[in-house]
Computed example of a mutant assay.
Amino acid sequence: MAIVHAVVLALALVALVFLPCAVAFFICSDGPVRHIRRRLGARRERLALHRLDRTLGQQAISLAELDEHQPSIQQIAADLRRLDRQRLGIATHSKVWHAAVLLAYDDRLRLASRCLGVPEHLDQLDGVDLEIERVRVEGELEAAGLALRPGAPRHQDH
Rank of each mutant, 00 (worst) to 15 (best):
S72A: 04
W97I: 13
A91N: 01
L9S: 14
L122F: 06
R110Y: 00
E142D: 07
T92C: 10
L66R: 12
F18G: 10
L109V: 06
A24H: 02
A78H: 02
E68M: 11
L109T: 01
E65I: 00
D53N: 07
D157Q: 15
R37L: 01
V101G: 02
P20C: 00
H158A: 09
R37V: 06
L146F: 03
E133R: 06
R46L: 07
R37T: 06
A64H: 09
A6S: 12
V118Q: 05
L47E: 13
L56Q: 14
R81W: 04
V7G: 04
A24L: 03
A24G: 01
L11G: 03
P20Q: 06
A91P: 03
V4Q: 05
D53A: 05
R34Q: 06
L56D: 06
L80R: 08
R149C: 08
C115D: 11
K95S: 11
R39I: 13
I76Y: 07
H35Q: 11
A144W: 10
A2K: 08
R38I: 07
L19N: 14
L9F: 13
F25Y: 09
R46W: 05
S113A: 10
R46A: 02
R46V: 09
V128D: 13
F18Y: 10
L52D: 08
A42D: 06
R85N: 07
G57T: 00
I61K: 15
V137N: 07
R85W: 01
P150G: 13
P20R: 04
E133T: 02
K95P: 10
G31W: 09
D67A: 09
D107M: 12
G151W: 03
P119F: 02
P119K: 04
A104S: 02
R44P: 11
E138C: 05
V101R: 04
Q59S: 10
Q156F: 08
D79Y: 06
A91Q: 01
A64V: 02
H155W: 13
G139M: 04
D106C: 12
A104P: 00
R134G: 00
A152N: 04
P71H: 08
D126K: 15
H93K: 14
S113V: 09
H50F: 10
V96N: 08
D123H: 14
V23H: 03
L116Q: 14
R134C: 03
P71D: 04
A112H: 02
I36P: 02
D123R: 15
G139I: 03
R136L: 11
L122E: 04
W97F: 15
V135P: 04
C21E: 08
E45V: 10
L80F: 02
V96R: 13
H93Y: 13
L141C: 00
D67F: 08
M1A: 14
H50P: 03
L109E: 00
L103F: 13
